[in-house]
Write a protein that binds this DNA or RNA. Structure first.
Length: 741
DNA sequence: GAGTTTGAAACT
DNA sequence: CAGTTTCAAACTC
């Protein structure tokens, strides 16, 4: 069984979160769930994840899409096609007729006015049709289409110049099959009083290949919210992300389809998949953050001694957590990876096989599956409990008197874990003495040093598994409750600066007392929170006054960390997560709140990170969206400037090289006072290099659409610089070799 | 480099 | 959750 912690995803970097609910695990077909083959235990499957770089605008920013669960099995079983009926802004119904159409209906304000349950399939006459392509096993393309009403001019208020965005029709492909997605910005405002257009919506369709020939084929349709819903006056904007899923089971004949549309209200997609993925994304300093997954003891399970051999690596960190089953005696020091349970899994990308994400089995300990996504700097790890223990499905009771609770449960970080922690042989892992169950903390132990308290894992309720949001069939190995599963964010330098090679042993502890006025102490001790602290670094050569952000004041620092995490559990989480498909997928975790800068200055964190503002931003007058002409201009100028610098640098380097080469020659020279005259250095090569510089200058001027006069001036200035360099070299040569030259 | 602007974070 | 305050970074001159 997979350990699923949806809340964990809220802590995950955007590499994962940015998948726009990609990890919304697909429910297996009913029959599969109902009668899993006993003799053939389904191996933990990493769901096919696709980050189709497709952006689809589907609803107004104020839309609060409620993904209907109406795609009942009955519907699916009686439908040969795939049709989803969604309501915008609220989706109240889903129908699956036989035409492979996905219809999204827009409901004005009474989503259940007809008295039907949300699950009732209702095809609104004014429904907006979304045809999903490429979902049919038979190969019949299912395409997305927009109702004509979506294309009508936006009725947005305000200037609307930069907000009226053109409709974009893009092609999506699900496993090689096309999906036509339509991205309409302000045209999709509908009844919303949105002042600004939604920018982007992501349509994600994922298809999971069958495990076997008769196995289920799962197709995910994920429709995520629009970006740039700033300026919304409607409170409905609390649903920035809408996630729909299409779970399709393929059968040899007309495949009944189970279509499930879920909703992700939070912009931080929750992973309800059976996979627990822990990945750490860099902020500005990739190595500054360390996320440690803490598996504390379950009331009904043996206490887990968490041993985490960590590898040192800069940049991305991978975190692998192994959780042994309750029936497996805890054994500390298990260092040799056992890959027997690791199975290669492929994650199907949206566009052909090129985007397939292959999960490369690595040498991992038992029950640990590492997921490596090509092209991604992040590594995903599945938390897989041992399959031997049928008692792993625990209810999370808190009154466990089982003596086995004192057993240590090893949680190991794979050797491939890239963290800023010295590598330590796993056999040196020291088992941690069980602690009371009422609290949890991270304790660092080393083979040489006493246990070191790093950071409390308590007070992180947001990462407690949410049982209600788990997909069917999910079993939480450690029952959620008082500190069963804790995930703590560790400032990496805090770990790295531990003198000895260290293990981070995570266990429960009551070391931290919330009764302490930590916050006040932290502020005083740390002199506020400087960037070093925020980045998880120790202060070094900064301007801090009475700085306590160092090892000399470790206890104060610990308290400050805890205080920060108490207030903001993701305080040390990178604000900007990097998407898998590149920078364009990066997203600010919180969104900016700019008001005057138009999000086109570095005041804006989104702009500073060179990412678009998203729906979670609360900025006003945002111009930092894809179609913004202002932004394009800035980007164009910035790119042009960068290119210019590079070209000029190259040209000057060439010129210098030519001059230097000339100086090395022993050519007869017309000497004047013992040296060459400057003009003697203007050889053919030098002249060509100079011309290159001038041409580059001219091209840059043209690229930046400079007036002719300005262009001429720039060229002349460049020529002057070239001449000066020639003269300078000549003088240098004259000085350096007055005799030979 | 000083003064101003800006926005994130802290605070209420 | 919204408004206010603080303060350091970004920006301008």
């Amino acid at each position: 069984m997979d350990v699923v912690s949806p809340e964990l995803n809220s802590l995950l970097p955007d590499e994962i979160m940015d998948t726009e609910a990609i990890t919304m695990e697909e429910e297996l077909p009913v029959e599969h769930l109902a009668a899993p083959p006993q003799s053939e235990p389904e191996p933990p499957q990493v769901p096919m994840e696709t980050e189709v770089p497709e952006i689809v605008s589907l609803c107004p920013a104020t839309t609060s899409m409620q993904m209907s669960s109406a795609s009942t099995d009955a519907q699916c079983s009686t439908s040969s096609g795939t049709q989803l009926l969604l309501n915008l802004p609220k989706i109240s119904s889903v129908t699956v007729p036989a035409n492979h159409q996905l219809i999204i209906n827009k409901v004005a304000s009474a989503p259940a006015a007809d008295g039907k349950s949300p699950g009732t399939a209702v095809l609104k006459p004014e429904g907006q049709k979304l045809l999903v392509a490429g979902l049919s096993k038979t190969g019949q393309p299912i395409m997305l289409a927009l109702p004509h009403t979506w294309n009508k001019p936006a009725t947005t208020q305000g200037t609307g110049d930069a907000k009226a965005q053109p409709t974009q029709i893009k092609m999506l492909t699900t496993v090689g099959k096309p999906v036509i997605a339509v991205s309409s910005a302000s045209q999709l405002m509908g009844s919303s009083s949105t002042l600004q257009a939604q920018q982007l919506k992501t349509l994600q369709i994922t298809k999971k290949p069958t495990v076997s020939t008769a196995g289920p084929m799962i197709t995910k349709l994920i429709i995520t919210k629009a970006l740039n819903n700033k300026g919304l006056s409607s409170p409905a904007s609390v649903a920035p992300v809408v996630t729909g899923r299409v779970v399709t089971q393929s059968t040899p004949v007309t495949p009944p389809r189970t279509i499930t549309i879920g909703e992700t209200v939070s912009t931080v997609p929750q992973n309800t998949s059976g996979n627990s993925k822990v990945a750490i994304s860099p902020l500005k300093s990739p190595s500054k953050l360390t996320v440690v997954s803490v598996a504390s003891q379950s009331p009904n399970s043996p206490q887990k001694s968490v041993t985490l051999p960590l590898n040192v690596a800069l940049g991305q960190q991978i975190l692998t957590v192994q959780q042994s089953a309750a029936t497996s005696p805890a054994k500390a020091g298990t260092s040799q990876p056992n890959a027997q349970t690791v199975k290669p899994v492929q994650t199907v990308g949206g566009v052909g096989t090129s985007q397939f994400k292959t999960i490369i089995p690595l040498g991992t300990p038992p029950n640990v599956q590492q997921i490596q996504v090509p092209g991604s700097r992040f590594h995903y790890v599945r938390l897989v409990t041992a399959t031997t223990g049928s008692t792993t499905a625990q209810s999370g009771g808190s009154t466990n008197t089982n003596p086995s609770i004192q057993q240590a449960k090893p949680v190991m970080m794979n050797a491939a874990v890239r963290m800023s922690v010295p590598i330590v042989p796993a056999q040196n892992i020291k088992q941690v003495v069980p602690k009371p169950l009422t609290s949890a903390a991270q304790v660092v132990t080393t083979s040489q040093t006493p246990q070191r308290l790093i950071m409390p894992a308590t007070h992180l309720p947001q990462i407690q598994p949410n049982l209600t949001s788990l997909p069917p069939g999910t079993v939480l190995a450690p029952a959620h409750g008082s500190g069963n599963m804790g995930y703590a964010v560790l400032p990496a330098p805090y770990v790295t600066q531990i003198p000895q090679p260290a293990f981070v042993t995570l266990t429960s502890s009551s070391t931290f007392s919330t009764a302490t006025p930590i916050q006040t102490q932290a502020r005083l001790s740390l002199n506020g929170y400087c960037d070093c602290f925020a980045n998880g670094e120790f202060c070094n050569n900064c301007n801090c006054v009475n700085c306590f952000n160092n090892l000399d004041h470790e206890s104060e620092r610990l308290k400050a960390i805890k205080a920060c995490l108490d207030r903001n559990p993701v305080a040390f989480k990178p604000k900007i997560g990097k998407g898998k498909q590149g920078e364009s997928d990066r997203r600010h975790s919180k969104g900016c709140n700019c008001k005057k800068s138009g999000c086109l200055k570095n005041y804006c964190e989104c702009y500073e990170a060179k990412i678009m503002c998203s729906s979670i931003c609360k900025c006003m007058g945002c111009k930092n969206f894809e179609e913004s002409p202002e932004r394009k201009t800035l980007m164009h100028l910035a790119d042009a400037a960068e290119v210019r610098v590079q070209q000029q640098t190259a040209a000057k380097t060439k010129l210098s090289s030519q001059i230097s080469d000339l100086l090395t020659r022993t050519t007869p020279a017309v000497t004047s006072g013992g040296g060459k005259l400057p003009y003697t250095f203007v050889t053919k090569e030098v002249a060509e290099a100079t011309c290159d510089c001038l041409l580059e200058q001219a091209e840059q001027a043209e690229l930046t659409t400079q007036p002719q006069a300005v262009a001429e001036r720039l060229i002349l200035e460049e020529f002057g610089r070239c001449l000066r360099r020639i003269i300078s070299f000549a003088g240098k040569a004259k000085t350096d070799c007055p005799i030979n030259c």
